[in-house]
Structure formats: C-alpha cells, structure tokens
Simulated assay, not measured.
Amino acid sequence: MTNSEILSRIDHTLLKAQASWEDIQKICAEAVEFKTASACIPPSFVKPAAETFKGLNVCTVLGFPLGYSLPVIKIREAELALKDGASELDMVINIGDVKNGHFDKVLEEIMLIKKTAGSKILKVIIETCYLTTDEKIRLCDIVTEAGADYIKTSTGLGPAGATLEDILLFKEHIGPKVRMKAAGGIRTREDMVKYLEAGCDRIGTSSAAVLITSN
C-alpha cells in the first residue's frame, strides 16, 4: 500500500481546543496538496476553510467530544456546518442514552441528523472505550438502521481510542452500506495499514505527517 493510497483514506484532523487559524490553514493546505480524504476541523473554522481552500473536502464535528448536547443543538450545528461549506459530519452519540438503555433515542437522533445531512456524509462516533461488547453490537444495528454512512470508533479525546478488535466486531455486525472509520491513537504508518487492511474505509488521525514527510 503506497503512501498516496493511505493518504486518500485519511481524514487529516486537527480538533485541539487551542488550534489557531494558522494551524488550521496548515492542515487544510496539506490536505489539498497530499489529497487526503478530508480535513477534519472544528465547526468555527469551516467557513473560512471552505472559502480559502476551494475544492477541499471539509469535515467537521457535532456534539463533540462528549455527545450529550440535545438533539436540537446537534441538528442546528449540522445545518450551520453544511451552510458554511462542510461536506462531511462526524457526530458523537449521547453515551448516557446508551447506558440508560434508551436506544430508541439514539436511533432517532442519528436519523434526524442524517435527514439534515441529506446526501452529505454522516459518520457516527460511538466512543467504544465507554461501551460493552453488547452495546457496541447494538449500536452497529442502530447506525445501520438510521442510514448513517459510517460508524466511527472514537473521538480521540476519550481515555482510549481505536482497536482492531472493535473494527472486526463492527465488520461482523454493520449493514452492507455502512463503512468504518477508526480514530484515536493511530500514529504510525504500520497502524494505518493494519486498520485499512482490516476493512476501514477511513482513518482519523493528526499524524498524517509521518506519511507526508516520507512521500
């Protein structure tokens, strides 16, 4: 697998609270130059990034990183992000609803946001580090039923990130139209290849520089 092939599957990510416009411009310029799948950036930077970097596939986040904002807030975030020029949305589910067994609420929220997203890509972050195996399997079913485009392992800001075991579990339980994104703790070329070979369609990482500098 070549560096270019790997880069084409990477969401080049910068979601640090202290990120400046200068930092965001660097990430976006790299995403354009090295043809990454997208640049994943905070909502407040979507509009200037989309206006500055024509043709860039801009990804942003909803309910990030804890997921417990009300559905109406996430929907409004989605509406504004799309208006500002985002092409992809990565939403965080309400993990409290999962723990309370309110899977109907989780399903409804994802469905509403996918309706808002329309033809734009929606990725659903389930934050696997907080979940049991049974909860992960149930969420594979829910993400599939809701019509989301991707199931995503992690925010990268929880106590743990992606694992190959979770990707293999997803692979067994998601529907045929749902793709997988691994994120959190994926920092080496070797790890990126492992996740892609395991079936991931996307990788979220802030460590694409290991490929860029050797390209």
Rank of each mutant, 00 (worst) to 15 (best):
D104F: 00
C129A: 15
D104E: 15
V92Y: 02
A86V: 13
E88S: 14
I73W: 00
M111W: 02
V72N: 12
H102C: 10
F103E: 07
I121R: 12
G147P: 03
K99H: 15
E79P: 07
A148R: 06
A81K: 08
D97L: 13
D149N: 13
T116F: 01
V143M: 08
I93L: 04
E127P: 07
I93C: 07
Y130L: 11
D104Y: 07
V106W: 03
D104V: 07
K120N: 15
E109T: 07
L89H: 08
G101D: 03
L139C: 14
E77K: 09
E88K: 12
H102N: 15
A78W: 06
E108P: 06
A146R: 11
M91N: 14
D149F: 01
D141H: 11
T133C: 00
V143C: 08
R138D: 04
K115S: 14
F103D: 05
E88P: 13
E108Q: 15
L112V: 06
A86Q: 11
G118K: 08
V106N: 10
T144S: 14
N100E: 15
D90M: 00
E79L: 08
D149E: 05
E79W: 02
I113V: 15
P71K: 01
K74S: 09
G118W: 02
I121W: 00
G96A: 14
L80M: 12
V92K: 02
I142M: 05
V143N: 03
E88V: 11
L107T: 05
A86Y: 07
A78S: 14
I137P: 05
I151V: 13
E109W: 01
C129G: 06
H102Q: 13
Y150T: 11
E145P: 00
I151P: 08
D141Y: 11
S87N: 13
E135D: 11
T133F: 03
I95M: 03
I93Q: 10
V72R: 15
I151C: 03
L122Y: 09
K136F: 01
I125M: 00
V72E: 15
G101I: 09
A146G: 08
M111H: 03
D134L: 03
V92G: 01
M91R: 12
D97F: 13
E145Q: 08
D149H: 05
Y150Q: 10
